[in-house]
Design a protein around this nucleic acid. Sequence first.
DNA 1: GCTAGAATGTTTGCACTGCTCACATTAAGT
DNA 2: ACTTAATGTGAGCAGTGCAAACATTCTAGC
Lengths: 204, 204
Amino acid sequence: MPQQASTYHHGDLRAACVRAARELLEEDGSAALSLRAVARRAGVSATAPYRHFADRDALLSAVAAQGCRELGERLVAAHPAPRAPEDLAAVAAAYVRFAVERPALFRVMFAEPCDPANAERAAATEAMREYVGAIVHDVFPGSDCEAMGTAVWALVHGLAFLQLDGKLGAAGPAGDPAAVTADPAVTDERVRAAVDALLGTVRR
Amino acid sequence: MPQQASTYHHGDLRAACVRAARELLEEDGSAALSLRAVARRAGVSATAPYRHFADRDALLSAVAAQGCRELGERLVAAHPAPRAPEDLAAVAAAYVRFAVERPALFRVMFAEPCDPANAERAAATEAMREYVGAIVHDVFPGSDCEAMGTAVWALVHGLAFLQLDGKLGAAGPAGDPAAVTADPAVTDERVRAAVDALLGTVRR
DNA sequence: GCTAGAATGTTTGCACTGCTCACATTAAGT
DNA sequence: ACTTAATGTGAGCAGTGCAAACATTCTAGC
């Protein structure tokens, strides 16, 4: 569909911007994304993205929404239908792994003050909430799904952020800034231990 | 001590910068703090703060460290010596209330990618970690304090962030951006319900 | 096929930012 | 008193978000 003969019209600049933004986020782990850098990478003038996004926040919201959907896919891939706390621990580990592997994207998704006005973004996070609710319904059938869902999501979400910010005590050599992403196995184990400590006992 | 006769030397610009930064953070809830704005508020030239802070990050780290200490005080004020899960719920509520009342400060403390190189900041968060560990040791004597401490902190921390980002379903009128800080009682109740759902059952 | 008009990109420009460097002013030590 | 270090100022650079005015291309309606 997008002919590359004429260079003036890009073809699908909106999608190209989102893709460029994601690439930049992954390359330098900083969440400080510049709209101009996005435009440069998309091979387009600095203000062209404004034809597709009202402002920087709108672009970020689009990226965040896409990130949410991908995170959702990762979680179901980790365990299609969790029923026991152990299954839930696997899903939790996948959640944290996503955050650690794509720190900048994860920060855009959650750490940035998000505007609920953006429909796409709001829908994506609402879907996330319902997914967690459904899991809790299966794993803890007797519980108050509303409160339990909130609690479980908070637990996992908090683990992701604390790990991301290196607040859980560096496992690697002291002061290594890259220690966060150092050993996924260590992180996994830490997440499982934490989830077990809280949820494993519920079962007893 | 600080004479106000001569206006050239400020007297204690370092402290004044931190104070100005905190004021600005509280006034407009955005975590996007400008060093120049800080300088303006301190009544000093734009580059003067660079005599006391290596860069913007260093100022933010100082602010974050101070915020951590204040949060610690708030928590012990909520309950001096928690022993039961209900006590812990009170502390959790205080944690989330702090985040909701000072969203910008809380974001600076945690959402910003923090450099572990900053000693003051690292010490403040390490103190937080030990505090949580001590509480868990008293509330769940038999448990693995390391894992349980991580889990409890993550739970509370996650609740704070999800609430801050409005991911827990707006209680107020739809699309109200200020709904986050709307009703502290509602937030409190939500936090207690979530904590009870997870920790209350541990006891049974 | 031709031509309005809507989409989409470009250029220019403004206000702001973080940060560096050369310089001015003040405080402190000998 | 004179040197020296500490502290604050000003000009300036590169980069940013965003708004207009302008240019180019696609798409209908005839």
